[in-house]
Structures are given as structure tokens and as C-alpha cells.
């Protein structure tokens, strides 16, 4: 070895270097796209105030630096970003980083729970469906998957709200915690969990059907492969075949999808967070677009880009762990 470092570190370092141009390109691209949209922060602020004279508007623009040509604005923003300074949110009157950090926890919690539920339940159901292919069980599971897949998440959310909150009154309608509850300790955890049940269900059910269908196809394919036959010829029982020979190999394509879907879940959480009024990044992004809060929006996009890059890296690590043929290099 030329390097005294462990190879995994070198690999991580290289991935980090590769990620830099990706993130820069994303930021420049979205900045320019956002500039193409008509209206800016000042228009939105003035609109909220109910109008102002042209002089005031011009002064406000100069103050925010919006009177400069686009490429100057871009350069200023990027140089600030290079020092991890996200700027000031003129809507929230707070540094963008503070606004983001407030919201990040909720979104990550929602995403992590939804994805892990979707992944575990989806792959388990998919494996069961495949092992009993073309039976009544398989049909039931497959039809359910199709129904979840075909139902839009906003519709599912509203229907669940109607049933569990309005009719039955079991679960809270929205928010992340009971506002006047001031719970601490375990009570707080239970309170948050109760608030997250419906959003998580709404978000995970759609993704669950993806995993279910992919896993079912994957298990059916692997079950026909030669080495499964070899294991059978060794005298291995069905349980053993499933755990040691089929599942491990069948999971590979599903893990690829898991990494790819992390970014789409971020998008899906916009709808769900807005419906359930969860104070997360998705809801923040929606409001930032409406209010033309450029700095906040760019901050969210930067954060999402980072999350996707990190998740992809973790997926690759997981993939290499699962598939012995792949060597990280």
C-alpha cells in the first residue's frame, strides 16, 4: 500500500471530492432557475404590506442586493455559501441556518421512519408474496400494493384525517406536538409519535408498494437461480434457502432503489408536511417559494443536495457490504 490510511477513508475522501462539483452545479442551476421565475422577495414583501411607493421599493431592492445583475448576485451568494453562510431570511428575520436547523429534525424524523417502515414491511410482504406466488395470499398482497401505489398521498392523508381524527378522534389532526401540552420526557416522545402516525403512514404506504413489487420480482428471479438449486441439492430446508441464499441476493436491487428514493421522499414530504401542518423542511420550502424567500429556499436546496449525496454514499457502503463482488475503489 502506498497510503497508510485505511482504504475506506480514501474512498470516503474521494467521494467527498466528487460531491463538491455536483453540489456546486446544483446550486448554480437552481439559483438561475429561481431567477427566471417572475417576482422577487421585495414583490412578495410589498404585496404583504399592501403596496408601497416606487422609491421605497427601489431602496429595499438596493438593500437586499437585488438591483445587481444576476451573475453578481450569484457570485456573492456562492462566495458566502463557500463559508457555509446561508444568509439572512427576510421573511423570518432570522439567519437561514437557524430556520433550517429548527425544521431539519422533524423532516429527518418523518423521512427516516417512513422509509424504514416502507422498506422493512415492503420487503417482508414482497418476500412472502413471492414465496407463495400466484396463491390467494400473493393476490391479496399484490392488490393491496397496487391500491396504495395508485392512491395519491394527499387523498390518503385527507381520508385518514377524516376517519381517525374527525370521526374516531383517536389521533391529532396536525402539528408535531400538542401546543399547550408542555410534555417532557417519555410523555413528549409519545406525544410526538402520536402526531407522526398519520403522516408516516401516508408517506410510507406509497413507497412500501414500490419495495413490495420490486422485492417480489427479485425473490422470484433469485429463487430460480442455479445456486439456490445447488443449496437445495445439499439438503437445505426452505427457511434456510430463504434466509441465506435468496434474501441476501434479492435485496440488492431493492437497496439501490432505497438510495434513489430518499430524494423523492424529500419531495413527497412537501405535500404531507403541508397537509398535516408539520413544521418541517417540506412545508418551509413551500412557504419560501410562495414568499420568494430566496435565501431560505437556496438553503433548503443545499441541505437536500447534501442529504442526497450523503445517503447515496451510505447506500454504496451498504451495497458493498451486502454484495461481496463489489469492491469500493
Amino acid at each position: 500500500m502506498r497510503f497508510p490510511f485505511p482504504p475506506i477513508l480514501i474512498y470516503a475522501l474521494r467521494r467527498l471530492l466528487q460531491a463538491v462539483p455536483v453540489v456546486i452545479l446544483i446550486m448554480i442551476g437552481t439559483f438561475l432557475l429561481l431567477k427566471l421565475a417572475p417576482g422577487d422577495t421585495v414583490d412578495a414583501l410589498v404585496g404583504d404590506m399592501g403596496g408601497a411607493d416606487a422609491d421605497f421599493i427601489a431602496r429595499l431592492r438596493a438593500e437586499y442586493g437585488l438591483d445587481q445583475p444576476v451573475w453578481v448576485q450569484l457570485w456573492r451568494y456562492m462566495t458566502k455559501l463557500a463559508t457555509f453562510d446561508f444568509g439572512w431570511s427576510f421573511v423570518y428575520e432570522q439567519p437561514v441556518s437557524t430556520v433550517l436547523m429548527d425544521r431539519l429534525g422533524t423532516t429527518l424524523l418523518l423521512m427516516a421512519t417512513s422509509l424504514s417502515i416502507a422498506f422493512t414491511v415492503g420487503t417482508a410482504l414482497g418476500a412472502i408474496a413471492a414465496r407463495r406466488a400466484y396463491s390467494a395470499t400473493d393476490n391479496l398482497i399484490s392488490v393491496l400494493g397496487l391500491v396504495f401505489y395508485a392512491t395519491p398521498s394527499f387523498f390518503l392523508s385527507l381520508m385518514m384525517m377524516l376517519l381517525f381524527s374527525v370521526k374516531l378522534g383517536w389521533l391529532p389532526v396536525g402539528g408535531i406536538k400538542t401546543i399547550a401540552g408542555f410534555y417532557t420526557g417519555w410523555d413528549h416522545v409519545i406525544d410526538v409519535a402520536k402526531h407522526l402516525i398519520m403522516p408516516t403512514a401516508a408517506l410510507s404506504l406509497i413507497y412500501l408498494s414500490f419495495y413490495l413489487r420490486l422485492m417480489r420480482a427479485s425473490v422470484l428471479e433469485v429463487a430460480d437461480l442455479d445456486y439456490v438449486r445447488t443449496a437445495r441439492a445439499k439438503g437445505a430446508g426452505e427457511m434456510r434457502l430463504m434466509i441465506h441464499h435468496i434474501m441476501r441476493n434479492a435485496l440488492l436491487p431493492v437497496v439501490t432503489l432505497l438510495g434513489l428514493q430518499f430524494s423523492t421522499v424529500l419531495g413527497g414530504s412537501v405535500v404531507v408536511e403541508t397537509i398535516f401542518t408539520l413544521p418541517g423542511l417540506g412545508q418551509l420550502a413551500y412557504q419560501a417559494v410562495v414568499q420568494r424567500d430566496m435565501n431560505t429556499l437556496m438553503g433548503i436546496i443545499f441541505l437536500c443536495a447534501l442529504i442526497v449525496v450523503v445517503v447515496n454514499f451510505l447506500t454504496d457502503l451498504l451495497y458493498a457490504r451486502l454484495d461481496s463482488r463489489i469492491e469500493l475503489a
Binding site: T230, H244, S324
Partner: peptide, 21 residues
């Protein structure tokens, strides 16, 4: 009986062994 009394050798050495073990 399989594996103990009757054993089998398959055609494709590429695919007849589990790649993950």
C-alpha cells in the same frame, strides 16, 4: 438424503455457487 447420500455437481461453475458467501 440430498447432499449426504446423493450429491450433485452442476454445469455452470459460475452460477452454481452463491456469490455472497
Amino acid at each position: 438424503i440430498r447432499g449426504e447420500d446423493i450429491a450433485m455437481i452442476f454445469q455452470e461453475p459460475m452460477t452454481a455457487l452463491n456469490p455472497q458467501k
